[in-house]
Each structure stands twice: as C-alpha cells, then as structure tokens.
Nucleic acid binder design. Structure first.
Lengths: 315, 315
DNA sequence: GTGAAAGCGCTAACAG
DNA sequence: CTGTTAGCGCTTTCAC
C-alpha cells in the first residue's frame, strides 16, 4: 500500500477511524490498551497523516508560509534561522517560497502561498507594493521582516540602518578617528550619503569636502555601506598598499558570513533576532484568532562586532 | 466573505459547481458566454482556489517540494535559480523547506514535505543517510542534486570536484605555472589533497615537498579549495605583500557571489544548470507516473570563470 | 455542454 | 471512552 489512510489503520487495529484520529493527535482520552494497538498498526503500515486532508478538515494547518524575496541574500538565511527557531519552539511548521529577486515572481509566489490557506504568512524583505501586502493581510495573518510597512493589520520588524551608520561612526570616533570616509558600491544612493553625513554631524564631525572615500585621501577610517562594498573595500585598501587597521580602519555595515571569516569589523542588525521577533509577532497574531489587533511595529538596534579591521588611531 | 468557495462563485454566476471548476482549470469545453460569466463572478468575489482541497480531490497538487540542506550555502540559491526556472517552464509550483544545516532538522523537514503529498521531491545537497532518501523515494518521486546517491529509483545530478581541481591546475599550467600549491581552510580533509595531487600528476607535475601553500614557499600559483578558503587566500596573499596575479596567481574552487565582485578567477560546477537538470529529471519522473525507471545519474563538468587573479608567468 | 452524485483523507461535533 | 454522522472545497465520473 503506497499511502495507507486513517481507515486502513483503523481496520488493522480493529477500531473506528475517529479513535485513530484521536490517537494520532495525541489526545489524552484514549485508553492505553487501544492507543498502543493503534500506534502499532500505524507503525506497521507506515502510516503518515495527510496534511492536506487534515488542513482541509480542521480549518487550520499548523503551518506558516515564509516568502523570501531573494534567496541569494545571505541575510535571509540568518533571518530564517531565527524564524525557524521560534516556529519550532511553538510547534509550527514552515513552508518557504522564493520571490527570486523579482517582484513579478514574488507576487506569484505570494499568491500560491495564499492559495495554500496556511495559518499565516511571513514576508521577508518583500519588494512588492505595500498595497499588495495589505491586500494579502486581509485574508490571512501577515507579518513582515526587513521592511517597514505601515498598516493596521500587518506586524513588522526591521533593523535600523541609520542607527547602524551612527554606531559605526561613534565607534570610530571613540577609537580616535576624526577623518572618516564612506564607501558605497551601489553609489548614487543618496540615502547612504545622507545618513552618513547625519551620523558624522551627530558625532560632532564635519564631513570632508568629499564624503566618499578616495585613494590618497586623508581619511583614517572607512565605513563601507553593505557587504559587497565591504569586501571590495578591503581589496581596494590592500591594493592601495594601505595597512588595515594600521593606517586605515574599516567598518562594514552588514554581516555576511565572509566578514567573520576574514575578521572584518561590522555593524549590522541581528538578523536571526529580527526573524525570531517577526515570527513571534505572526504567531501571536494567529493565536489571537483575527482579533484585528493594531499592527505591531518593532525596530531592533544594530550590533557591533568588533574584529580585526579597526584599531585606535596612533599618531 | 473571507474566502469564497467554488460554490459561492457558482451561485453568483447562476451555474453549477462543476461548471465553475471546469472554467477555473481552463477547460475548452465551456461556452464563451458562461465562461465569462463565471470569470466575472469569480473576480468580483475575489475567488482563489483552495490548493489543499484541489490536491485532495485531484490526487495531485501541481507542486513539487524542495528540501534545502542549508539555506546559508550560497550555492543553494544558485541551484534554486535553475530549479525554479525549469519548474516554472513546466508549470509546476515549488515549495521549499530547510534542513537548517542539521541532519535532524533535515529529517524532520523531509517528513513534513512527504506528509504534504506533493507530486515530487527535490533534495538539494542532503546530509541525511542514503537509506532515508531511498525510503522517501518509495512513496514519492525523488531527485537529488549535489550529492551522489546510488539508488534505482532516485535521479541524481552532481558536479565533479575532481574535474574542477584538474581544470584549475591545467589552466594554471597553460599559463606557465609549474609550482602550484593548494590551500584548504577545512584542512585535514584528505580528499582535497588527494584530488589535488591527482590533478598535479595528470598535468605531469610532481607535488612539491609540501602540498599545502605556505608563506615564503616557492609556489607561483595557488588553488583554494572552497569559497571561504578563497576569500581567506586572497587576504593572506595580500597580507604577505604578494601581488596577485603579478607574483602569485589564484584560482578558487567554488563560485560565491563575492568572487565575481572581487574579480577572482574560479572553477565551479554551474549551479543553476545542476538545478535545472535535477528538476528536469524529477519532472520527467513524475510525468512517467511511477514507471519505476532506473535512476538517472548525471555529472556536470565544471566551468572556469577567468577573472583578474590569474596571469601568465613571466620569469 | 451541463448538472448531480460520489468521493479524496481527515476532523469535529454528537450521541451512545 | 467509543462509534456515528457530517462535512472541509474541490475534482471527476456519468448520465442528461
């Protein structure tokens, strides 16, 4: 028998289907005798409950969906660690789908997840329009991580990139640096420079004539905006013959796996923690059973991991 | 109405449920008139088919499961690109689950995926025992990517690390290198050194007294076994004051995203292609409808991406 | 073409 | 405690 059903188990154990159902769900009100008979029969038959059928009948599945905007983003893997942890802790299974980095695909994946009628949906770094998220939330509990969404019925958990920038700068200032530059591979993003200038100002520093780092500049420290930029920064500094952290200190905003291996000092949102909080919010919302609670809005402060690319300035 | 059903649509359109079902699945044998009425009603109601119910009734879901051993492995994201592409091309939806890098979790995730009764299962780089994979394959079409599994009913698609090593070495030899060293952060893996020696021998070179790279050695080229090792190698070489590729050439086995950004020459299995082939094998198997075909075994040759860390030797 | 009837495998009242 | 009775939302014969 390829896939024995509840009925097969019942027949073999000589009991009714309902009894088997109770046993499978670990109900306490079944006699030890019969329970064991049922378990034995199920085991011998290699019985596995059909989740679809269960979900259909019960009206809930015990599963939550996770939509990853882009599997290539190493951040997602860390977020997922937190997500999975919290879900496991609360006995909820996770099903993932990927947006493949493209809004169109993401939209499609969202639709499929919605059609599965899972108990809830967690959107990780969604790139689709807020209105679409809102619409999804109308039919299913939704939480978002990694992107602020202002909506009454969506919980959302985010990091704080401005705070991260500020943390990087203040740390460098503590170390004695006064001429700090910023590096951004995705250059032209005005927000990065803006945030950088604000952080500088907050630390009581005036930006140099040029905010961005350039070889031969006077900067004694560099803040790299993003993981890719960070790796590139390291390479560039080395190529320029600069000793790190002897001559130049480097702080990277973001915490890709490579950073730890290479001993790069980083400031980043604690991804797993974001994930955990988002999942907690989602499960709470599911638990509330649609008590149209106000959307929870959580911002998590960044974490500094001081490794080997930063040092005190020694004139 | 939170989730209108087929029946609601039928009522609104003034037809029977069966007719709506036909329309929703795009059957050609429905009059234009009625079809449009149904579509209109469905749209107005915001109807979305319930996949669980559909799967239960139809006996197939139109979905395949993908079990990722470890989401942190950037390789998986690339494999998934290929997977998703092929699945989309053939009209199959994908549902992912993660093994979280731990065999125990992976086993659990496999069970959940199995319980969903999807049409097929794709295991990406599984770490669980071959026997467990075999067992899963008894109840559901299964294909494996990234790990060789010899089984009559499992298709599997893998890269070829020995060939990758050989490709790296022959390329370096073409460039004039004769003293080539190997670097392996996960040191102690005997297989790596063994494969390296074999590649050297094949290229007509004798290994130096010591196979592994060491600062101050005479090697003019280094092969780094793995992405992490590659990044570390680059840093180490730079720290040692060596010009790359002026004094030392570097080839990394593996193709993490950072490699391209940093212009590192790599040799790696074409991950997306592996994914595509594995998904194709799985869908073929599903299509065969359990015609206990012999397991397909595909090995894909590695690809050299020559970037900026390799150069001809100029004595 | 179209509608009625019979499930898919399971859960959830409800009587015994 | 146990078995019976209805469905969950959809697909699928099979007559009309």
């Amino acid at each position: 028998m390829a896939h024995p059903t509840l009925e097969d188990v019942a027949a073999r154990a000589g009991v009714s289907r309902a009894l088997v159902s109770l046993v499978m769900r670990g109900s306490p009100k079944v006699g030890k005798e019969r329970r064991e008979a049922v378990l034995k029969a199920a085991d011998e038959l290699g019985y596995r409950p059909n989740i679809m059928a269960r979900g259909l009948a019960a009206g809930r599945t015990g599963m939550a969906g996770v939509l990853a905007a882009d599997l290539h983003d190493p951040l997602f893997a860390s977020v997922h660690d937190g997500l999975a942890d919290e879900a496991a802790r609360r006995g909820v299974r996770l099903l993932l789908a990927s947006g493949g980095g493209r809004p169109a695909r993401e939209r499609a994946a969202l639709g499929e997840l919605l059609d599965l009628r899972l108990d809830g949906l967690l959107l990780a770094g969604p790139r689709i329009a807020a209105a679409e998220i809102e619409r999804a939330a109308a039919g299913c509990p939704v939480a978002v991580v990694g992107r602020p969404v202002r909506s009454s019925r969506v919980d959302c958990v985010t990091g704080d990139d401005a705070a991260a920038m500020a943390r990087a700068v203040t740390r460098l200032v503590e170390l004695g640096h006064r001429r700090i530059a910023c590096m951004d591979l995705g250059s032209g993003r005005p927000r990065v420079q803006q945030v950088f200038k604000a952080a500088l100002a907050e630390a009581g520093l005036a930006p140099d004539q040029d905010v961005l780092w350039r070889p031969g500049g006077a900067a004694t420290a560099v803040v790299a905006a993003g993981d890719a930029t960070g790796t590139a920064a390291l390479t560039t500094l080395h190529r320029a013959g600069l000793d790190v952290p002897g001559e130049v200190s480097l702080v990277v905003l973001g915490d890709a796996p490579g950073a730890e291996v290479n001993g790069v000092t980083t400031v980043a949102a604690p991804a797993a923690e974001l994930g955990r909080l988002a999942m907690a919010a989602l499960l709470d919302r599911i638990g509330d059973g649609g008590a149209a609670r106000e959307g929870r809005r959580v911002t998590v402060p960044p974490v500094l991991a001081e490794r080997a690319t930063t040092g005190a300035i020694t004139p």
